[in-house]
Design a protein around this nucleic acid. Sequence first.
DNA 1: ATGTAC
Length: 480
Amino acid sequence: MDTKTVQGYTLIKDGVNRWRIPKFGKMRVDAIVYVNDALLSLLHDDQSLRQLVNAAMLPGVVEPVVGMPDIHEGFGLPIGGVMAIERHGVISAGAVGYDINCGVRLLRTDLEARDLDKETLYKLIERIEHYVPTGIGKKGRHKGITRKIFDDVVHNGVEAVIRAGFGDRQDLNYIEDGGRLSGADISAVSKEAQERGEEQLGTLGGGNHFIEIQRVDRILDEKLAQAFGLFKGQVTVMIHTGSRGFGHQIATDYTKILWEGAKKYGIEVPEKGLAAAPIDSKEGQSYYKAMVAAINYAFSNRQIIMCDVIKAFEDVLKKTAESMGFKLVYDVAHNIAKWERHGGRDLLVHRKGATRALPAGHPQNPSAYMQTGHPALVPGSMGTGSYVVVGKGELSESFFSVNHGAGRKLSRTKAKSITKQEFERAMGDVIYNVGSYKDIVDESPLAYKDVEEVVGVLVNRGITIPVAKMVPLAVVKGVD
DNA sequence: ATGTAC
């Protein structure tokens, strides 16, 4: 029997790139981690496995809790964690994350990367920055409109911003859950969160959020790529952002409320980050209503940003969106909790740094992707590359989830010690909008795991099909 | 991730 000890836990190898922590102590279910040896050895210094083990102790948790190959330490559930809870179990804000419905959107075009020279790329990112406010605390350019439609947005999602003129009704078919979950209730959201939300709709934010102009570098599955409108040498645009200060405030508010709730209902919570209350309780219900408001908001935020990015391309290239072939490929959430049907029962699946990936034929696929499975978007770091994959095979164990990115290897603090030379070398020819490398050094490719390796783990495990790899040409990051 | 602090 192949075993390893990491973070004091004994893991048993149980299949290709699959390690099991059998339940012990207060764990109610086993934990499974999808990693290879190299990625497992990166986990020695962090607390991600302990966090996964702790999640396995929560009431109502369903076998197994799952760690993805990009797993690393977070607040509560690790980033790269999946935790499904049965109907009468608990809901946890920390298992969704501070950036509720952080997610990724991919746009395709008919443009060829070879037609965009450096000067044009610089103009494009400059123009994108003109339209899309970036950085922490920034307010939206569309405040006049977004304040008016705010209530509509949180309850009805992307449909509301489309009604206000951002994009086309067709877009709804290319967003997870049609860009809206039901059950939002603004009255469950604090005044403070509402104020932050009204002002920040249509902004990118900071940290790992980005807008990237990419070139399709490799097609790995010709048939699926064609179905997604992707071809080699093509220009694509990837947008990575979430619910900004709105979701953050909700997460902050409810972490406190659920912590008190846990005490009130006598739920043993192993750490503050996993603060949780019964789904059926007043506190749990309120969090769900507020969380869904933030989910709808984040989908809408990416919709507005998409429209602004397309406007920037129209300005610079002096062509219409239509003539450039702009089309939304897909939009996925990777910090979310939602009700899903698994194995004949309704489960509240918490995904934190994990992406849903429904395979071909799964009834929950949007109609456009029923025959193929929907694209799952896996951004790497800003200097390396990103993948489009599709789920396949034994995905039910992970509740139809795959990894969400490369995953951090160095903490932000540790990444600060990367030198300018190291940073520039890692960025290669990629153009970026930031003057000083110091402003984004913690987002250096060197701070991230190797996306090829991370994606390869699930490919080799037989639960994803790689479809296309995109490499960055130019990236817009937010700085303070 | 985040008006990065109760």
